[in-house]
Write a protein that binds this DNA or RNA. Structure first.
Length: 819
DNA sequence: CGAAAGGCTCTTTTT
DNA sequence: GAGCCTTTCG
């Protein structure tokens, strides 16, 4: 049978084992998607299972639509009856349909991260908690984790062990009440409330049992407790539960994904059958060996040996850049070169990084070099202000209970309803226990004399009345207009169009974004008008980063390592591979977190089919400061024979061997000392000849290897430990870039001629400079100190230079002299 | 009331 | 460097 042709034995078993619980442990590139789709097709064609009796859950909408596409090719139009979607989207659908059983309004809105923060903030205000002392974020994280573990406010409150948690439980309780008033659910509610619905209403669950005979869950290693509960509930009767995943690719524990779901799956299903897919069809042997080297130090894993029949392939390129600017430039030029000389196309490249902020430098370079790129995530389209404004209007029209949206748009564009007025209205809403919008209606209707509760001045009252009237008219319009007409009318009536089109270029751009939103809305125009707006808004809320990525579109993909999960590219460049970036600084002192960083790097490496570049910079501007980071500690785990090293040609003056000791002597890496040691981390390594060697980790004296033979691939000895990496100086055509003078850069210009040795000072507890001191700096000349403060053990001196303006200088670097 | 400017803090990853 | 908040001025 065609469906089974070309499957390897493990795949075959996974496709044809249909009854009972099945766990498929699928290594990267092992044909997982093929297995899932063929399994579904097999169920339909061979077993005669009706498509509408199969539910498949994916991690992103993009994965869902790709699965749909492939299934359509396999089984034809009947595939339209399958239920394929993310957990969140599937739950949203269930709740809209059956949530009324537990008192849910079917037109609930879905609150995203921003909305949640707004809501927490208003709770904090109401509880009179100072936002400085009690920032909103941590509360939201606590609430989110609690919900992911199916703990409501009550359960959460029972286990508080600190004062803060007690406060959090009060915030949580009130937050949940306000969601209800707003007729809103947040992301986590979609899951938690679904579990609750199934628990409270067995007849509802039974209906789903009647319908769904087969359940498939992809990326199971990244499910949380709530999601797992849903799987168990839905699969309780049929027990035909097939979960697919790879513990080595579990990278969402911070989002409460619980790796135990997959590691301990068999405890819940003793009759579980497990199939391991170990043959890799994606990558070269070189890439796979590097990946294996990176992942194997992890303790918390199930051993799995990937293998491939693919050839050795090209060596991995390891590139050291001077800074992020040069890093990006290297990436751009390298891509240009491969496209020109080796016949690759732009869409075959992906550049991956740990944090979204890193995309900026890349974008700059790509724009300069005229390379098309596709940016995933970052400032997402749906998070742009104008887009969110318009969506907030639509949400308010759909659901007047939505106070977050009401508050957002009540004065956009400005219509004379300021903070003072809103405080008044909020008070009223609280007193009466009604939504914000309802409170506005009440505030307008009631006379200030009589049994007055509000004291809205007549002018303000008119403004509020006009807003209320406008919204109510649009609500009435909704009944008769399609979504596009409604949108157009809204943009006119609210004055939003005129507000954006203020003649500036930025306004024009924002307007175009709104029009882009209109294009998206067009897809929903044909739906039944009752549910069209719901569906549209839901689609907006549950949109994921990668969903907008079009594979066939020309351009280099710029993407975070997280978002890259599940994707593959012929050429992958991973940038920013420095300690503190990848692994991220917030993970380095937590072994479990470090393992996850390792898995993340592993995910990145295994996205590559043919070519892989690993890039790091010796210095990087982060959050406005220059940082000096070590190359990523993960490099030590990549066998050196797989790697070609390239640097920027002639090394900068005094390039220390120590930079590479990171490769040779990983376990000896100096651990971060207790307390803050920002200055040590950042500076000393660069100046070993003067710094007395603190932290430079070895052979002082900055000698560059004179001539090393190029490192050629040699057969890898898998478990015998990595061979120390040696740098192979290769002269690039690129001339070394003179460092740009930057206020925080030491000496502000090693490279443009001899620089006076920076005086390294031990940071002290108190600022040594005070306002008014006259100082001299070799590059900036004379100046006067404006202020000085201690930042993480280092002194940050703000100096007004006579010639060069005001600069902030880190005293540990800056050769600042008192006059 | 509203816009603009200044100052503060924080800075991972996302359905 | 950005976003958020507060302050200030019109």
């Amino acid at each position: 049978m065609q469906l089974l042709d070309g499957l390897n034995p493990a795949q075959l078993e996974a496709v044809t084992t249909l009854a009972g619980p099945l766990l498929i442990l699928a290594g990267p590139g092992s044909g997982k998607t093929r297995v899932i789709t063929h399994r579904i097709a097999y169920l339909i064609q061979q077993e005669g299972v009706l498509p509408h009796r199969i539910m498949a859950v994916t991690f992103t909408n993009k994965a869902a639509s790709e699965m749909r596409l492939r299934l359509e090719r396999l089984v034809g139009p009947r595939s339209g009856d399958l239920t394929v979607g993310t957990f969140h989207a599937t739950c949203a659908r269930i709740l809209r349909r059956d949530g009324h059983q537990i008192g849910l309004d079917p037109s609930f809105v879905i609150y995203d991260d921003d909305d949640q923060i707004s809501l927490v903030k208003s709770v904090l205000k109401e509880l009179e908690l100072d936002e400085k002392r009690y920032p909103a974020r941590p509360f939201l994280s606590a609430i989110s984790s609690a919900k992911s573990e199916l703990k409501g406010p009550v359960e959460y409150g029972e286990f508080t062990t600190s004062y803060w948690q007690e406060v959090a439980s009060r915030v949580y309780r009130r937050y949940q009440e306000m969601l209800k008033t707003n007729r809103a659910l947040d992301f986590d509610d979609l899951l938690m409330i679904t579990v609750q619905l199934f628990k409270d209403c067995p007849d509802v669950l039974a209906r789903y049992h009647d319908r769904y005979q087969h359940l498939l869950v992809d990326e199971f290693q990244d499910t949380n407790i709530a999601q797992y509960a849903i799987v168990k509930q839905l699969g309780a009767r049929s027990r035909n539960v097939c979960v697919v995943g790879d513990p080595d690719q579990s990278i969402y524990s911070w989002r409460s994904a619980d790796i135990r779901n997959i590691l301990n799956f068999e405890e819940d299903y003793p009759d579980l059958k497990t199939v391991v897919l170990e043959q890799n069809y994606r990558s070269t042997t070189t890439i796979l060996e590097a990946a294996q080297g990176v992942i194997s130090p992890n303790v918390m894993r199930k051993e799995k040996k990937l293998w491939t029949q693919n050839g050795q392939g090209d060596p991995i390129t390891l590139f050291e850049a001077y800074d992020e600017g040069e890093e990006s430039k290297f990436v751009a030029r390298e891509i240009e070169r491969l496209v020109a000389r080796e016949g690759f196309s732009l869409k075959e490249f992906a550049v991956m990084y740990r944090t979204n902020a890193q995309s900026r430098a890349l974008e700059d370079a790509f724009l300069r070099y005229g390379l098309r790129y596709k940016l995933v995530g970052g400032t997402r389209f749906y998070e742009r202000r104008e887009v969110k404004d318009v969506i907030a209007f639509l949400r308010l029209i759909q659901n007047q209970g939505d106070g977050v949206s009401a508050a957002r748009v009540v004065n956009v564009p400005t219509r004379g309803i300021g903070a003072r007025t809103m405080a008044e209205i909020e008070k009223l809403a609280r007193q009466r226990g009604v939504s914000l919008f309802r409170a506005m209606e009440i505030g307008v209707a009631e006379q200030p004399d009589g049994n007055a509760t509000t004291t809205l001045a007549p002018r303000v009252r008119n403004a509020v009345a006009a807003f209320v009237e406008m919204v109510n008219q649009l609500v009435a319009d909704k009944a008769t207009l399609g979504i596009l007409n409604l949108l157009d009318r809204l943009l006119e009536k609210t004055g939003y169009r005129a507000f954006l089109l203020d003649g500036t270029e930025e306004g024009q751009e924002r307007w175009e974004n709104v029009m882009e939103l209109r294009t998206v809305a067009r897809d929903y125009e044909t739906l039944n008008p009752q549910s069209a707006l719901d569906a549209f808004l839901e689609g907006m809320a549950l949109m994921s980063d990668v969903d907008g990525l079009k594979d066939e579109e020309e351009g280099v993909t710029l993407i975070t390592l997280h978002a890259a999960k599940g994707l593959e590219y012929p050429c992958v460049m991973i940038v920013g591979l420095e300690d503190g970036i990848c692994p991220h600084s917030r993970s380095v002192d937590d072994p479990a977190a470090l393992e996850e960083e390792r898995r993340l790097f592993y995910v990145g490496i295994t996205r590559a089919m043919k070519r892989l570049w690993l890039v790091y910079a010796t210095r990087r501007t982060l959050y406005g400061n220059v940082n000096f980071n070590q190359p990523s500690r993960f490099f030590t785990d990549i066998p050196a024979n797989l790697v070609d090293f390239r640097g920027t040609g002639a090394p900068p003056v005094g390039k220390p061997d120590a930079l590479f000791s990171a490769f040779a002597a990983a376990p000896k890496r100096p651990e971060p000392q207790l307390g803050y040691s920002g200055s040590q981390r950042s500076g000393l390594l660069r100046f070993p000849s003067r710094g007395g060697g603190a932290g430079s980790g070895g052979s002082g004296g900055g000698s560059w290897p004179k001539s090393q033979p190029p490192v050629r691939p040699t057969p890898m000895s898998p478990r015998s430990g990595p061979v120390p990496l040696r740098p192979t100086p290769i002269t690039l055509r690129t001339p070394p870039i003179p460092p740009r003078p930057s206020p925080m850069v030491p000496g502000s210009g090693m490279g443009d001629g001899p620089t006076p040795p920076p005086e390294l000072r031990e940071p002290v507890g108190d600022p040594s400079f005070k306002a008014g001191d006259r100082v001299y700096h070799p590059a900036f000349g004379n100046g006067v100190v404006v202020s000085s403060r201690m930042v993480r053990g280092d002194e940050e001196v703000t100096v007004a230079f006579d010639q060069r303006g005001v600069k902030k200088l880190a005293l540990s670097f800056a050769p600042l002299q008192r006059q």
